[in-house]
Write a protein that binds this DNA or RNA. Structure first.
Lengths: 181, 181
DNA sequence: GTCTATATAGCGATAGAC
DNA sequence: GTCTATCGCTATATAGAC
């Protein structure tokens, strides 16, 4: 676990990139192997099947979410502001794993849908002490879901962001914080 | 246009159902034909290709959104309340077309992603006169997006809704209306 | 650990009978 | 307008050399 083979990580990154940029359909073993710079046989040495590849993405997601929950719990700006600010696309490791998992979920992978629901439940649990009541919690969760939904749509083709950024986002966060606390 | 062939509609409905319940991967011509109760040849008489099938879903979506915009414009409860109330899954024709289009978008179909962005822009235009400012508009749009995102996730497998319903939804709508108007 | 070559199956689409 | 039969391609996965 301490030093995973480099080729294995490269393959997983390539799979994730393909899922994000081209969708599940295009993320074939051939295409992933090509992007990762290995042969199909080489790929299948590290991941025995396509399902194995998907499972690895979901494990990566779980690990990144655990770190995120930890950071959110101790964020100086407060949990709500941290959560909303990090819900816009920054193309970091967690964003990418989330979008990849969403692609898998929508392609019909049941474990991916369950993983995403579990992640959402963890976030809700962490946010609950920081908001006034359940209605306020729903409001914050849904706005974050909305930001992710747009990230997911815009990552499909190379479209520019349709959601607020920078100044507009700061105003939105301010409005939400006034509403929920 | 006045009386489209019944078999054609059955095929389109079957395709939509497969997309929603099993994802784009599983919505093969064989599977769709089987659900619709026709042969693959029969299917391909009505829709020349799989792309043609996807395009028909997007045309259906456009027509249903046009009706929805019309209803929203004259809703007695107000545009914001109408919009939020109809953003939770009711399994009506519009919900189904939206989820199907979202599956196509995430499978890498570029026209689907563009269609969904266009729909979102139409909704924003209709809501704008009903809210205080752009930040408020963003808040309403994102909560609706969040509700759809959860619909989409929960439709993949047979999971129960994770978003507010009935009383909790009414409270959320009330909170949002206080915030944006 | 990575490669090439190949088996096997499923998919989209065509052809032609009825 | 709907069917059966079939073609050609591509995808996943295996076998075995290096």
């Amino acid at each position: 676990m301490a030093r995973p083979p480099l080729a294995r990580e490269r393959v997983l990154d390539a799979y994730e990139s393909m899922l994000i940029a081209e969708g599940e359909r295009a993320a074939t073993l051939d295409a992933v192997a090509r992007i990762a710079g290995v042969s199909k046989g080489g790929l299948l040495y590290h991941f025995a099947s396509k399902d194995d590849l998907a499972a690895a993405i979901l494990r990566r997601l779980d690990a990144l979410v655990e770190e995120d929950i930890e950071r959110m719990s101790h964020a100086a700006e407060g949990r709500v502001a941290y959560y909303m600010r990090t819900s816009v696309m920054e193309d970091d490791a967690l964003d990418r794993a989330l979008i990849a998992a969403s692609r898998l979920a929508q392609a019909g992978h049941p474990d991916a849908a369950e993983a995403l629901r579990r992640v959402r439940a963890q976030w809700a649990e962490t946010l609950r002490p920081a908001v006034r009541d359940e209605t306020a919690l729903q409001l914050v969760m849904l706005i974050s879901d909305g930001l992710y939904y747009n990230n997911i749509l815009d990552s499909a083709d190379g479209a520019g962001p349709t959601t607020p950024k920078d100044g507009a986002l700061a105003e939105l966060i301010e409005l939400v914080e006034r509403t929920v606390s």
